[in-house]
Structure formats: structure tokens, C-alpha cells
Write a protein that binds this DNA or RNA. Structure first.
Lengths: 338, 338
DNA sequence: TTGTATGCGTTATCAC
DNA sequence: GTGATAACGCATACAA
């Protein structure tokens, strides 16, 4: 009889109903070919009838590997981890892989705790997602399963990290503005201690150097990731440099604030000033008036690629280093580019 | 020797190092009292030395119950499931419970698939989170583990569902406005086919009836959950009823749009018009100018309570029906209430 | 107090 | 082609 007489049916139940041994039933259900077609049919029928589902725990215990991976995150809002998770689930496909989620909330102690818990659950691998894409401590080399960092950069070069190519993304935005004839481009962005901020500014500077253009708006405006900052910074830029004909923002949230100030001052977008954001965070980018041209970091794709590499690593193909994945320009009305 | 000679240490390894049998080691580690203090010390020391972590799979296989629960969600953005998840993790505390997350993306087929997968993983219970708080099909009575619905209402009254008390939340908002002397209150909200929309309107109507006040702004303005709609609807309201002195919005996102229109038309908030939102979605509620007074649905608390009930159910204390959990008014500047 | 034996549900090995 | 048997890592009933 099966578990506790009345519970979920077990392989033994199926075998009994089919009139074969558990071993044979196992082979039949797992599609091994050392089993007679007639027998297989009987077993499958019995399994169907009992709505049999193999106990993944028992299976993992004997096989030594789970079909579960751990996702260790720190961004409590799920702003980055959810897209990464969705991308991972996509890549997993019907592989019957499950994701154990643990949110360490940026606390190193809690993070260590969760790593141990996830390992106790015998996860086959770990994906670490950052609360920002900044460099962050490695969870260590003594972890007995493969680890990849997605939207996070491990300080240990022996780890494998996946980051969006913010620098390239910024260049895409600027090329777009440049191609539309804009020559007085200002930049309003977030805190200077974000890798994303710095990389986007690097892309900006490289582009301006390449085409021989000065930065407009007097200087790069560093602030916070908030609409509030966008509103204020737009005032500064307009006051200091009324000729500005384009503003490239370090995030859509900032761009949303900029939009408000421009509207309040009667500046037309994109006619007077073209606007480009970053993130393609749709609750902002599709909701401003006009909707934002913006740079999408392809986080879902990043999650998919990271998990593919994780599986490769689980399969023995270890890799190391930092991979920058391309961004994508999403053109809407705020730049006048279509 | 343990797994594959060199892998993760097992209980047997610990026992060997401590010079006792695996059974004794097990008892010592699990805090059973039929073991001599000296022996326990030896075992603990050995476990420490080997960094031993019990294999949760094996433990579950023998005990028959896992320390894992499944979280089945449909809101791809994580807008509701993440707070619920955090609340659940809080309630779990150090119980070493893990959460297996599956995102069905609103697809019933995928949902069934994930339920089966989660069950195959032997989850001890299931939390179902909706993409909205609307009524949704039950995942069925044939699920062999307890299920609770959080921010979702199962169509089956035998299920246990937890919902925010939107009606009560709306009343809190209105009482607040009323107590501040506002008497011409309009309502701008989302689609009429959302339970949340309807319940908030119900609360509105009940309140207005109670105090004998007519609705201002001509009628309830139903639309979408978007800033865009908020901007337009505010125009309608102001045009139809210029005397309005308060606008209660069905969401912060809508309120953010309303704010923009009010600013554009030179209407002062809260002096001319007081504004109250709903959701306390902080990227909106703390970022508008002025910041929004709004109703918080306490989703994290809802998640905590739902998971507590789930554990009770796992422990045998089944419950059924629908529980409405109170909202909380968060007072900021947009209502002039502080 | 400690150790031996057994079983959880499944798969793999190896006889038959 | 099929079925005993052992093993995965752990916990427990029971014997010592």
C-alpha cells in the first residue's frame, strides 16, 4: 500500500495495480526501452488511473541531483529579480525545474543563512540577483553547487556575472538623439555610487568625444532615482542652459519627473526638447505624456542567459568573468524618432 | 564515507568523526534528550567541524512532510506577490521554511501544470496569489495539501481566502477628507470589472449615504489603472464640477496622473483640492508633489496572516471562507491632514 | 544511554 | 523483458 494507506499514490501502488514490480514500473514510466510495449501500456494506464506523480524528493535522493535551483535576491520590490526569474523560467521551459526563492533584503547575515538553507534543500545551482547591478561580495567559493550572478557583479573574478551593457545602452540612446539632429544634450541621472550611473555616464562621454560634442546643461546632474529629483534637476538644467534640445535621463523614473517640469514650463516634448529614459520601466515609460523613448536592459533575456549558463555549469561547463549583455532601444514619442 | 567520497558531509560522516553511531548522532543533533551531554558535545563538535547540514530531502522523505510551501502567483510584475511573499517569510521566521515560487502568468493551463510540479516537490501547502483581488477559479479540492488564497478570492466557499477590506479602506479615506471639512468629493478610479474598484465605490457610497452627502464631479469616473487616465479624468471632473474640493482616487497611479493635471491647471493641492490615493505604492505615493495621503492594503501583513493560517491548516486546523483584513490610512501632504 | 535494524519512494544493478 | 536487491541520507522503534 502507498503512503499512509490513503494518501498520494506511490510507484508501488502503480506497480501493484499494473501487476508488475516497482522496478519495472519505474522503467516503464521513465521511458527506458528495456520494457515490453504491452507492459508499458499497462503501467501507464495504472499511473494515469491513480493520477500518480513521482515523489521528486525520493527521486532526487537517489539520483543525487535536484531539479531545483535557488534564486537569492536582495531587491525587496522584485524590480530586477522578477524579470530575471521570468527569464529563467522561460529558459527552463518544460524541464520541470523549480525555483526556490529567498529574499535576503540586502542583509549579509540573512544572505548567508539563506544560502545554507537553499543548499540544505539540495538546490542544483544558485542565481544571485542584486538590488542594484553594483559590485557585491561573492557568496564564496566554498559553495558546493554552481553559482551565477545576474544583474549583480561578484567581486570575485572567478565567479560568473551577467550585467546589462549600460555603457552601450547609453550610446544607443545618444546615437538616436544625434541622428535626429539634437546637438545640445544634457544628462540627468541618479546617485554617483551606482555602477549603472557611472557606466551610463561613461557611455555618454565616449559618445560625445567621438562626435566632438560638448555636454549641454552645464554638467552631469547626479541625484536620486526619483521623480522628485527629475523635477528639480530639469529646473536646474533649463535655468543654466535654456538652449538644451535634448535630455538623456539615467532612468525612466527620473524622466517622468523631468516630463512634469517641462510640461509645467510649457516646453514641448519632443519639439523643443527630446527626451530619452533608461530602464523601460513601463509604469513610467508608457505612462508619461508623451510616452518615453527609453533603453531596455533586456532583463528577462539576461535571466534566461544566466540560467542557461547555470545549467551548463551544473553540467560541468564552468565559466568565469563578467558578461555584458546588450540593451535595446525602445522608441516612443518623447524623442520624436518615429 | 559520505556522498561520493568528497562531497557534502552526511550524518554518517559526522557520526564517524564523533565515534558514535548515526542514530546517536541524529538524536544529538535533533536535540532529543536520550543522549548523554558528553556525547552530544562530541557530535556537535564534529558537525561543526564538517560544516554538516542535514539533507532536507532525506529528512522530508522519512518524516513525510516538507518545510517547503508553494507560492503560486499570476501577477508577473510581482506587484502583489512580492509583498505577500515577504509577509510570509516574516511569519515563517526562523522556521527554516522555504518558498517555492511559480508564476503561472494568468494562464490556467500553466497553473495546473505548476500545481502538479509543486505537489511533486512535496510542498506542505500552497499560497495562491492573484493578479488582482478578483474572484478566481479554485485550484480544486483534490489538492492533497492545504491551500490559502491571498489577495485573491476563490470561487469555492470551502476554500480560505484573504482579501484587503477595500470597502473599509475607502471609508477611512473619506472619513479623513470629511473630518478635514471637505464636502465636495469626487471619485476617479479604475475598471469597473475589478473587485477592488467596486468595493471601493461601495465604501464611498455607504459613507456618502451615512453623512448625507452627494457625490461631486458628477459621477464616479471609471477608467484604467494608469496615470494617463488620471490626467484625463481630472480634466473631466474639473470641467463638470469646478467646485470640487477633494478627489479620492482608486489608486496611487491614477492619483499621480490627477496630480499632473491639477498642477498644469494651477490648482493647489491640498489648498484647493485635497487628494487621497489608494495602494500606497511608494514609487507613486511618496513621489508626487505633494506626496500622497493614501490607503495601504497591508499586503505584507496579509501575507503573514495567510501563511499563519496555512500552517494552522497544515497542522490540522482547517478553516474556510473569506477574511477581510483591515487597511491603514497613510497621511501625507496631499490631503492637508497633518 | 547507545547501537542495530528498518523504512521513507525512487532508481540502478544485476541476476533470472 | 522482468524482478529481487541495494542504495540515497535520515529518523525512529526497539533491542542491547
Amino acid at each position: 500500500m502507498g503512503r499512509r494507506g490513503s494518501g498520494t499514490p506511490t510507484l508501488t501502488d502503480v506497480a501493484a495495480l499494473a501487476g508488475v514490480s516497482p522496478a519495472t514500473a519505474s522503467k516503464a514510466l521513465n521511458g527506458r526501452d528495456e520494457v515490453a510495449p504491452a507492459t508499458r501500456a499497462k503501467v501507464l494506464e495504472a499511473a494515469e488511473k491513480l493520477a500518480f506523480r513521482p515523489n521528486a524528493l525520493a527521486r532526487s535522493l537517489v539520483s543525487g541531483n535536484t531539479s531545483t535551483i535557488g534564486l537569492l535576491t536582495s531587491d525587496s520590490g522584485g524590480r530586477f529579480s522578477i524579470p530575471v526569474l521570468l527569464g529563467a523560467e522561460n529558459a527552463l521551459g518544460d524541464n520541470q525545474i523549480s525555483v526556490l526563492l529567498a529574499d535576503a533584503r540586502g542583509d549579509a547575515i540573512r544572505e548567508r543563512h539563506y544560502v545554507r538553507t537553499l543548499l540544505a534543500q539540495q538546490v542544483a545551482g544558485l542565481i544571485v540577483v542584486g538590488e542594484s547591478s553594483n559590485r557585491r561580495p561573492s557568496i564564496g567559493r566554498d559553495v558546493p553547487v554552481p553559482v551565477v550572478y545576474a544583474y549583480a557583479e561578484s567581486t570575485d573574478p572567478q565567479d560568473l556575472s551577467f550585467l546589462p551593457d549600460d555603457r552601450g545602452g547609453a550610446k544607443m540612446a545618444l546615437e538616436h538623439l544625434y541622428s535626429l539632429g539634437r546637438r545640445k544634450i544634457a544628462h540627468i541621472t541618479g546617485p554617483v555610487d551606482y555602477r549603472a550611473t557611472v557606466e551610463r555616464v561613461n557611455g555618454l562621454n565616449e559618445f560625445l568625444d567621438d562626435v566632438g560634442l560638448p555636454l549641454a546643461g552645464r554638467e552631469v546632474r547626479y541625484g536620486e532615482w526619483s521623480q522628485r529629483w527629475g523635477r528639480h534637476a530639469a529646473e536646474f538644467v533649463l535655468n543654466d542652459d535654456p538652449d538644451v534640445d535634448a535630455i538623456f535621463c539615467g532612468s525612466d523614473q527620473v524622466a517622468a519627473g523631468v516630463t512634469e517640469t517641462l510640461a509645467a514650463r510649457g516646453v514641448r516634448v519632443p519639439d523643443d526638447i527630446a527626451l530619452v529614459g533608461f530602464d523601460n520601466w513601463e509604469i513610467f515609460s508608457t505612462e508619461t505624456s508623451p510616452p518615453l523613448t527609453t533603453v531596455d536592459m533586456n532583463l528577462q533575456r539576461l535571466g534566461a542567459i544566466a540560467s542557461q549558463h547555470l545549467f551548463a555549469a551544473i553540467g560541468g561547463e564552468q565559466a568565469t568573468g563578467i558578461r555584458h549583455l546588450p540593451c535595446r532601444l525602445v522608441i516612443r514619442d518623447s524623442s520624436g524618432g518615429r
